[in-house]
Design a protein around this nucleic acid. Structure first.
Lengths: 289, 289
DNA sequence: GAGTGGTCTAGACCACGCT
DNA sequence: GCGTGGTCTAGACCACTCT
């Protein structure tokens, strides 16, 4: 439990004396220093464990933060202190700290120190990814129906607002996404059209939009922006979604940009509010390894 | 442009001979190896630059990936190769690779290699954080009005579904969030109530939910789950939001859990669909440093 | 067994913040 | 000037994959 040698000891712990000899009525600095050392020696790293040292240390520090032993705004021991006292190299300590920082538990400031962050429980992160994978994860059978493909001279208003140009023309296609044969979402996608390019129905039906855009415009999209909000279903989309007009839907607008920040493809997607939702789960380190 | 010494050269480049001497009609393995070396030598690290080497390398590799020189699914040179050929330590190479992996450009597989990932442009990440900060960022004046505070014997249905227990009782409070004096969101929060605890109006109005819960239950929330979907505004909330009943709103349900995964506080928030949206921006490395 | 990524060490120098 | 975090090095051992 207590340190074996004198190697890394703070001056207030003199070898062979132990905690009882600490001058309790000394100045405040010494007292807070004492508290720090007590905290540090409460757990040690087991180098024979299967869980790597950097992760063990992260767990220890996480516990101290979550339990309130280290309070919000307080500074952690410096990297050198941690590395001395847990007998780990600074590299390992840093790897641990960067893990905790990634999780939002701490933040670092060059030249100042590492500090416990405000808990991030009141923020949520939502990830919208591939519909097919998402539904499979939820244990549902995903499906996709190609509703129509059109060539347009004019872009829809929202695409113009994003700064998109029609050039040779616009290819517009519309898909209906299903889960267990129930309609979940309607997608409208608009991209630059280069004349004479063959377009395969299969492609539109199954490939990701960024891929379709890349293949058919020869332009590589490098940036993507998406905007999510709530809206009422319009007549056309409500019918496809099999809901009454005006029912609430999640509306996602996506724009793909090339290297020069010019939009080369835009989409607008509507998800049934009663059948589709996004989930965010935040928990510090648990559920790994 | 070409390597100076023989130190880190692949056997197919023999010192003093250069590229012209490569056996072009050799077996396929040699040819693909050759292509790899050509790619590698197209850029070099400037150790006197202000941008650190790991970041320079990340930029180089990013370019190769985005430009299609390295295609999806292909393997990158091994860490040892990269470190030899760019004259960096393996640690530095790894730091660079972990940056690219974080951004979703590559993925690593122990024992196999590092591979170019499918572009992640078709997924969106939305972050919902502190309303006050969010509105300030948008250049709007945030506001908050405490609508009511109640003590309930029974929990609302959605809280019961989450597995929450009433114990001594439930504190329910309702806030209206404004931006430039326009109503944006209505929040309903429910938490365990411990008798005799003084509750300050100020606290409910300005503190984050997780803090209020922590202070008034003495239980530290460690996990948070949130669910986002679209719904129609009910009578009560529509009135506060100053919209017609049935208008689309973003609905966010939040639950805070303690160490034993018991819910200790839940909330349901409605955001006006026409005034509130979430934005996701994905671009590989740009816009940093 | 050879090659890959994953982890760790012990040391170095730098940029930054304080005082 | 000293302590802090940020970066880098050169070497080591391990676990995994493939042949």
């Amino acid at each position: 439990m207590w340190p074996r040698g004198s190697s890394g000891l703070s001056p207030i712990f003199e070898e062979g004396k132990g905690i009882a000899h600490v001058e309790v009525n000394g100045d405040n600095k010494q007292q807070t220093a004492m508290i720090r050392w007590i905290l540090i020696y409460m757990e040690r790293i087991n180098k024979n464990s299967f869980t790597p040292p950097f992760y063990q240390l992260a767990t220890i520090l996480e516990k101290k933060i979550l339990s309130g032993q280290l309070k919000v705004g307080e500074s952690l021991p410096s990297e050198n202190e941690l590395s001395r006292e847990y007998e780990l190299s600074r590299t390992t300590v840093r790897k641990c700290l960067s893990l905790l920082a990634e999780r939002g538990l701490i933040s670092t400031q060059q030249g100042k120190g590492t500090f416990v962050s405000r808990p991030l429980l009141d923020r949520a992160e939502f990830l919208m990814e591939d519909f097919h994978a998402h539904m499979t994860n939820m244990g549902k059978e995903p499906g996709c129906r190609l509703i129509h493909v059109q060539f347009l001279k004019e872009l829809p208003e929202f695409a113009v607002k994003l700064g998109m140009k029609a050039n040779q023309g616009i290819l517009h296609y519309c898909r209906l996404l299903l889960a267990d044969n129930e309609p979940i979402a309607v997608e409208h996608k608009y991209m630059m059209y280069i004349k004479g390019r063959p377009i395969l129905e299969n492609e539109l039906q199954y490939k990701a939009f960024s891929e379709v855009v890349m293949i058919h415009t020869d332009i590589l999209p490098v940036r993507s922006q998406a905007i999510l909000t709530a809206e009422s279903a319009g007549k056309f989309d409500a019918k496809l979604l099999n809901v009454a007009q005006g029912e609430p839907v999640l509306k996602l607008q996506q724009a793909l940009y090339d290297d020069d920040n010019r939009p080369i493809g835009v989409g607008v997607f509507y998800y049934r509010g009663d059948r589709y939702s996004l989930v965010s789960d935040k928990h510090p380190l648990k559920g790994e390894r």
